[in-house]
Simulated scan of single mutants.
Amino acid sequence: MSGTIDLNQFLIFVRVIQAGSLSEAARRLNLPKSTVSRKVSELEERMGERLIQRTTRKLSLTEAGRVLFERVGPAMSDIEEAESTVLGMRGTPRGLLRVAAPMSFSKLGPIVAEYLVRHPDAAVEMVCSDRRVDLVEERFDVAIRAGALVDSTLVARNLGKAKFMLVVAPEYSKHHGVPKTPAELTSHACVTFSGGVAPHVWTLESKSKRVEVRIKPRLTVNDMEIARDAALAGVGIACLPEIFCGDDVRARRLLHVLVDWSAGEVPMHALYPTRRHLSPKVVAFVDLLAQRLLY
């Protein structure tokens, strides 16, 4: 036995046995009877054994045919079930979704929970790391990334931009006041994120103006959640993405200072390996990200 396996030969052989005749198998398969007979003959030639004894009234399996049917029949059923499952996934998100996301991204928690509630046949495995994962090699369906893109082979869905803002706790402002100009930041305690290029220098823009201010941090940390907690505790003025502190500002737990000045923006993207045959579980998740992630 050599050459490429023709699965149609095995499928037609199984259908002939199940139907009880070549004619009935041909009808069920919507094929000419001659095609069905030829495929069975080709399989017998490949096996080097007669598989079916043919008479004018009925078909019967030879010993070799019985052995083959007992092994191939269940396999064909598994293939059909797999096909049915995959076809059923076209419209409904289902199955395991593997997501790579940045560390300290608490905003994703409610989004993932909403996704799972909406789609009860789906499950999520989320790996949070600031390492740039290899989506294909590590079999991730989606990666969420902040900053400039470097993976030219991946498909990117723009999720907007994470806007940074300067915030401070009311308790801090009560004792130390708040800056009226960027230059006044130099006299205030600050909380800064150490993941940037120059964490002790904040760049602010307002209309056509652009200034760089060298701050004096009381806390330098590479975790946004810790920076936010420190700001809430009144440690100092923090420069945080709105997705981390927007709710606190709206609830007046933090005050937005220097509101006429922009503290920068970082592009956000959802990445996936290919656009072709994109699974509904990926489409639904990325669509929800686009709706909920950024203000």
Rank of each mutant, 00 (worst) to 15 (best):
49 E>D: 06
26 A>Y: 00
199 P>A: 12
194 S>F: 03
287 D>H: 07
104 S>D: 12
171 E>L: 11
12 I>E: 07
170 P>E: 09
171 E>Q: 14
43 L>W: 00
144 I>D: 03
35 T>Y: 03
236 G>W: 09
142 V>I: 14
154 L>K: 10
193 F>M: 04
151 D>A: 15
34 S>N: 12
108 L>P: 04
127 V>C: 02
1 M>Q: 05
1 M>H: 10
172 Y>H: 13
264 G>D: 03
46 R>F: 11
161 K>H: 15
236 G>L: 07
50 R>H: 08
192 T>C: 10
152 S>F: 05
261 W>H: 07
37 S>K: 09
133 V>R: 14
67 V>F: 04
295 Y>I: 03
196 G>Y: 15
136 V>M: 13
211 V>H: 03
222 N>M: 03
185 L>A: 02
62 T>F: 06
16 V>F: 01
140 F>A: 09
265 E>Q: 10
64 A>Q: 11
142 V>T: 10
221 V>H: 15
185 L>F: 07
278 L>P: 04
205 E>V: 11
27 R>F: 09
161 K>Y: 15
245 C>D: 01
143 A>K: 00
159 L>T: 08
87 L>V: 03
229 D>I: 08
16 V>W: 01
82 A>K: 13
251 A>D: 13
17 I>D: 01
293 L>E: 05
286 V>F: 06
286 V>E: 09
31 L>T: 02
153 T>M: 06
176 H>D: 06
180 K>L: 11
14 V>G: 13
136 V>N: 08
5 I>P: 02
76 M>V: 09
42 E>K: 10
59 L>I: 13
169 A>P: 01
232 L>K: 14
145 R>V: 12
134 D>R: 02
87 L>D: 12
170 P>S: 06
281 K>F: 08
76 M>E: 15
280 P>W: 00
78 D>N: 09
156 A>H: 14
193 F>I: 10
114 E>Q: 10
190 C>S: 13
42 E>A: 14
294 L>T: 14
283 V>N: 10
73 G>A: 12
268 M>Y: 12
96 L>G: 00
87 L>C: 02
23 S>M: 04
129 S>W: 02
151 D>P: 00
5 I>V: 15
72 V>M: 12
32 P>S: 10
224 M>R: 05
232 L>I: 13
288 L>F: 05
249 V>T: 03
31 L>M: 15
114 E>D: 07
135 L>P: 01
177 G>W: 13
157 R>A: 10
185 L>P: 00
140 F>H: 06
46 R>V: 01
192 T>A: 15
147 G>S: 07
76 M>G: 04
73 G>S: 15
260 D>E: 14
100 A>P: 00
80 E>C: 02
176 H>W: 11
146 A>W: 07
292 R>A: 06
246 G>P: 01
288 L>R: 10
174 K>R: 15
51 L>D: 08
157 R>K: 08
125 E>Y: 06
42 E>H: 11
45 E>R: 12
208 S>G: 03
26 A>M: 03
248 D>L: 11
27 R>D: 12
293 L>F: 13
178 V>G: 07
276 R>D: 11
87 L>I: 04
